[in-house]
């Protein structure tokens, strides 16, 4: 095509267009690789996992190799207990600390220190958290326990909840805070009733994301909850079954095909739980932006 006249010497268009195409191509391949990997992983888990899923598999407790009617019911219940316990410990502390950071701690030395520690803690390898809880709880108590697993997961959840709470509260416009105070509310009431309510979907999102992050964690449970072939009635005093440890044990430490298959089944269940939490989060977040 003929180009329009110009008073200045023209640069060729070819290389600019080529660059445009190359970068588009590059981003598309990145997308294909990322999505492909995800589809591959989920597909494998789905195909190999679904084969062994039966009501009995989900409801019966795990048993040593060779005993019939084995399942992963105890591990599912144990995981719910351990992550539930972790949430019980981490959510109130994390939200309270996040409120402190957003409402009182900005620019203070304590606030900056706390924020720095949280960032470091978020980057810490989770196996170190497991070791810490091992030395602080498991050794003094003389036994692995589900509650030690909860504490380890809570230590991982805490900084995540704290930072998302802070970010979400800082997104609430200052004028809303001022409007609450200008009506004669105390600081506490303004924060809890108005600011937190206004950010509630964001707070919930942070909590759910941290839950989905830890519900698949294995390393912190290795030294704390361990594993047991029984129903998790010894949550406070003894080793407690959980899905991530079951997967590790069955797929890496067992020579038997049936155990490997059960491991895939457990992987399917834990993926389904995480996917469920993530989708719930998405729905919460959508409400936040479009719901009026």
């Amino acid at each position: 095509m003929k180009r329009f006249e110009s008073v200045y010497p023209l640069r060729p268009l070819f290389f600019r267009k080529l660059k445009n195409h190359l970068i588009t191509l590059f981003s598309w391949s990145a997308v294909v690789i990322a999505v492909g990997a995800m589809v591959w992983i989920l597909g494998t888990v789905l195909i190999d996992g679904l084969k062994v899923i039966t009501p009995g598999f989900l409801l019966n407790p795990s048993k040593p190799y060779g005993i019939p009617d084995a399942g992963i019911g105890n591990a599912i219940l144990g995981t719910l207990l351990i992550t539930g316990g972790a949430a019980l410990l981490a959510v109130p502390c994390g939200v309270a600390a996040g409120i402190y950071l957003a409402e009182f701690g900005s620019g203070t030395r304590l606030g900056n220190g706390l924020r720095f520690c949280a960032n470091v803690l978020m980057g810490m390898p989770s196996i170190l958290v497991g070791l810490l809880v091992y030395s602080l709880m498991v050794v003094p108590m003389g036994s692995f326990s589900g509650v030690a697993g909860s504490v380890a997961l809570a230590v991982i959840m805490f900084p995540v909840i704290m930072r998302t709470t802070e970010d979400m509260l800082l997104m609430v416009p200052a004028s809303l805070r001022e409007a609450a105070l200008a009506l004669g509310m105390t600081r506490t009431r303004a924060i809890l009733r108005i600011v937190c309510t206004s950010a509630r979907n964001g707070l919930l999102t942070g909590i759910l994301l941290s839950l989905s992050r830890v519900s698949g964690e294995t390393a912190p449970l290795l030294f704390t909850a361990m594993f047991a072939d029984s129903w998790p009635k010894d949550y406070f005093t003894g080793p407690t079954a959980n899905i991530p440890m079951l997967i590790t044990e069955y797929t890496t430490n067992s020579p038997f095909e049936e155990m490997h298959a059960a491991g895939w089944g457990a992987a399917f269940v834990v993926s389904a739980i995480i996917l469920f939490i993530n989708i719930t989060t998405r729905i919460c977040f959508r409400e936040r932006h479009h719901g009026k």
Binding site: P173, S175, L176, E178, A179, A180, L181, A182, L183, G184, I194, T197, S198, R200
Partner: peptide, 17 residues
Amino acid sequence: ELRRKVGMIFQKPTPFP
């Protein structure tokens, strides 16, 4: 008490959620 006696309206509307 002061703020009960002196109300304020802001630039952007600030309805509570």
